[in-house]
């Protein structure tokens, strides 16, 4: 598997700002993976996405896109990437379909607009002006917009923000399918759910720095408490006991509880990513 993006010691400062917004970060986005950038508001996630999509150019450090210096890429770079923005990006007085047709016209290879719009439930609203769309509908249209050119790398900034669970599910399924077909995804979010359900690897981003880059599973193994919580009935009330997961096969107390007690529930105690984020970064997400 190749490397889609390789970022080394990236620094960026907005002209109007006194200190760096991105303070020296390094990471690789591997071809065919879903890479998540997770962090609280103001961490620099959108800024990082704008740098990788060549919208912000005065950065320091090295960025390679499939082995080529990002700065040397011309506008054909945009034939290959799809960008989903954090905020709606449509002509409000044009209909949803007119918008998609307009943007689609500029790409050499294009996706089937009808298929995409049907999938996200917008086809029946294709002739409605975007001005009349709800927030969630605009978010879904943004997602369709990002996929218009069958991109090789897909950038998604807070793609499920403002969506109800059903629509969030549809978008996540589509992202997973896109990856299954070989696509690469760079996704920024402050929602743990997105990361847990989608990302192959995640980077924790706080105040312009990356604290930890790993798979959600490894993070849980490394930082999560591994334990089993048993709830059982004793003298007419519910009691509970917690046992370490390591060596559970030899834990006499656990075994005798299983044999004698009236077990109601057993849970392996997984520390949530949210808790792990706080443990690792020392920063609350919200």
């Amino acid at each position: 598997m190749g490397v889609a993006f390789s970022v080394r010691d990236l620094h960026f400062r907005y002209p109007s700002s006194r200190e760096d917004t991105i303070k020296g970060i390094s990471f690789d986005v591997l071809e065919g993976e879903i890479f998540g950038l997770l962090g609280p508001s103001g961490a620099g996630k959108s800024t990082t996405q704008k740098i990788l999509t060549k919208l912000l150019e005065d950065y320091k450090g090295d960025i390679e896109y499939f082995g080529k210096n990002l700065k040397s890429m011309d506008s054909s770079f945009y034939e290959e990437i799809g960008v989903g923005f954090e905020v709606p990006v449509h002509f409000s007085k044009l209909t949803a379909l007119e918008n998609m047709r307009f943007f689609s016209r500029f790409y050499r290879k294009t996706a089937n607009i009808q298929e995409l719009m049907e999938r996200v439930g917008l086809w029946e609203y294709r002739d409605v002006k975007v001005a009349e769309f709800s927030k969630g509908m605009k978010v879904r249209l943004n997602f369709v917009r990002a996929l218009l050119n069958n991109p090789r790398v897909l950038f998604l900034d807070e793609v499920t923000n403002g969506l109800d669970p059903k629509n969030a599910r549809i978008i996540k399924d589509m992202i997973a399918e896109y990856r299954a077909k070989g696509g690469t995804v760079f996704l920024t979010t402050h929602l743990m759910n997105d990361v847990e359900q989608l990302c192959d690897r995640v980077a924790f981003c706080v105040s312009g720095k990356l604290i930890e880059i790993s798979t959600p599973r490894d993070l849980k193994l490394k930082y999560g408490k591994r334990e089993v919580k048993v709830e059982y009935r004793e003298n007419g009330t519910i009691a509970s006991a917690v046992f370490p997961l390591d060596g559970i096969g030899f834990n006499e107390e656990f075994h005798s509880l299983l044999k004698t007690g009236k077990v109601e529930t057993i849970h392996s105690g997984e520390t949530s990513l949210e808790e792990i984020f706080i443990i690792v970064t020392g920063v609350e997400m919200k």
């Binding site: 999509t53 060549k54 919208l55 506008s75 054909s76 770079f77 945009y78 034939e79 990437i81 960008v83 923005f85 905020v87 709606p88 990006v89 449509h90 002509f91 409000s92 943007f103 500029f106 790409y107 050499r108 917009r145």
Partner: peptide
């Protein structure tokens, strides 16, 4: 108006100069 709608931004990530 276009700036408010964010459409210039999305034009900047298209293969046009």
């Amino acid at each position: 108006l276009e700036k408010q709608e964010g459409t210039i931004r999305t034009m900047m990530v298209m293969p046009i100069s």
